[in-house]
Structures are given as structure tokens and as C-alpha cells.
Amino acid sequence: MRAVFSLAVVIILVLIAQVGAGSAGMRYLLGVIIPYIAMAVFLIGMVYRVIKWARSPVPFRIPVTCGQEKSLPWIKSSKLDNPHTTLGVIGRMALEILCFRSLFRNTKTELRKGPTLTYGSSKYLWLGALVFHWSFLIIFIRHFKYFTEPIPSFVLLAQNLDGFFQVGLPIVYITDILILVALTYLLFRRLLDAKLRYISLAGDYIPLFLIGGIAVTGVLMRYFTKTDIVAVKQLAIGLVTFSPVGADVLGQISSIFFIHIFLVSVLFIYFPFSKLVHLGGVFLSPTRNLANNNRMERHVNPWDYPVKVHTYEEWEDEFRDVMKAAGLPLDKE
């Protein structure tokens, strides 16, 4: 139900763009005005989010430790899974963000024995997530070629690596295939696993369909329906140099491009209001980004306040007689 709703939302978005691409005025809206709005909403929204997170202090240092602590010199501590130095924390965060360490853990021990079904499937979650996020990143970087002139070398490098196998004409990017496969997997995983279906909200399906729509329109443009790349680049450069192109250039671009850019814009607008903010939040998670040096260095709670305690004096006053009888030492006789 929630999946159908989400799919419907994305289809409506596609239709809006499809219809809009038909008129010159709407083209300007879809190709220039909405992308600007989207960028503004995304940037302001994300900054607002991060500030909001960061403004809540971290009163206690509560890392979740996943390995041996640093204690006696002859016991080997786990520097990445239970870091006690800043360097270790950076390593732990890097493993988490670049390699999805925790998701990988899912499978680590279960591979050892027995039938394979679930070990496979929990490993697939790690693999699916990793393939999806990395493909997304590489595709994102590849798109810099539209916004820059001359094209920076790292963009060309990403592009060359991505097209490494030199298959097809135009050359097929591996990430184009991988992202579609990964999205399909992540979607079907949600739909077919009863547990996941139960916990999934509309907000879990919308990004999948939205990004799916973006990927499909992108693939269609590159491999099937030709688009005037030169015009697209003119549009893109115009956007980043704040000198947007006019109706003449917009008129040369095929309508599918407007669906693509509209969905991208919607994704950017949607981003700060959705679970997609995990992009920023993962860096701020106190169970992962703090060193387990709790007994080595004092952590200060900025809002600490005095509390009512039961002092020794009050306590001795209450129990003096029984303590005396039991021969326990007293501060006051």
C-alpha cells in the first residue's frame, strides 16, 4: 500500500515534467527556476539539519565498543572496532562510511556454518547498500563534467574507470547497470521480506522510486534516445555561473531531460526532510564517533547540574547507633 502510494507519487512527478516540457515557459521553470530552488532548499535544509543536530550537546561519552578495549599493555586492543585515539575513531568512521563495516558484521560469523540462505541474504544487504551508494557517488561525480570546463581530472578519471570495459557505443558505464540492479534489489527486499514490509514507511519507498526514476531517465538519454549534450552542458554551465540559458538552448533539449532534471530537483528538495539526511547524520552518531578513552580522559557534560544526594554525614546520623553496636568506625561519636 505504502509502496503503491510512493510509486504513484513518482509517476505523477514524471507526468508533470512530461507535460511541462511541452511549453517553453514551463521548460524554463523545469530547467532553471526549480533547479535553483532545489539547490537552495537542499543547502539551507541540510545546513539547518546539521546545525540542529550539532546544537544538541553530547552529555555523555557512550561509544558502542565492538572489540577489545585498550587496557594492559600486553593485551592487544582492537584499534578500529574499539578505538581509544582520535586516529582510531577516524579509522572506525572511515570503515563505517566507506565500507559499511557494521552492515558487513551481519554476515561475518554466520558464514562459518550450515545452510547458506540467510547468511547470503544479510550479506546481500551489505553488498546491495554498498553497490548502491558507491554507484550513486560515482555517477554524481561523473555529472561534474556537465558543470565544469575544462573538466577536472578526477571527473575524467571516474568516467574512465566507470567505462573501463569499453563495451558498447556509447560506452556502457558499469555504475549505470549496478545502480539499477542495486535499487531493484533494495526495493524487492523491502517488498518481499515480511519483516521489512512491516516496518517500511512511505518515506522508505519514495527515495527508491525517485532515484530509480532518475537512473532510468538518465540511462534512456545516454543509450537510447539521444539528447543534445552540447545544449545540456550549456544549460548546466549557465546554472552554475548564474547566467541561465535562454529559450533557444532549452528548445534544443529533449523532453526526457526535463523529467530527469525535475526528478533530481525533487530529490534535492525532499532530501533534508527525509531519512536521506543519514548522509550527514552518520558523521554525528555519538556511539560511533567517540573514542573509548572514557577512563583516560574526562568527558564534560555542558548541562550538568547538582542533584540531591544522600551524604555520608546524613547517612551516619541515621545509622550511628547500629554502626556503633557493630563496631564500625564512625566520623562522629
Partner: peptide
């Protein structure tokens, strides 16, 4: 942060 970032991945 925990209120905002869960993606319900099911891990």
C-alpha cells in the same frame, strides 16, 4: 540524531 537518521534497513 537517532530520531532523524534511521533508514529502516532492517539490519
Amino acid at each position: 540524531v537517532f530520531m532523524d537518521i534511521c533508514v529502516r534497513c532492517g539490519a
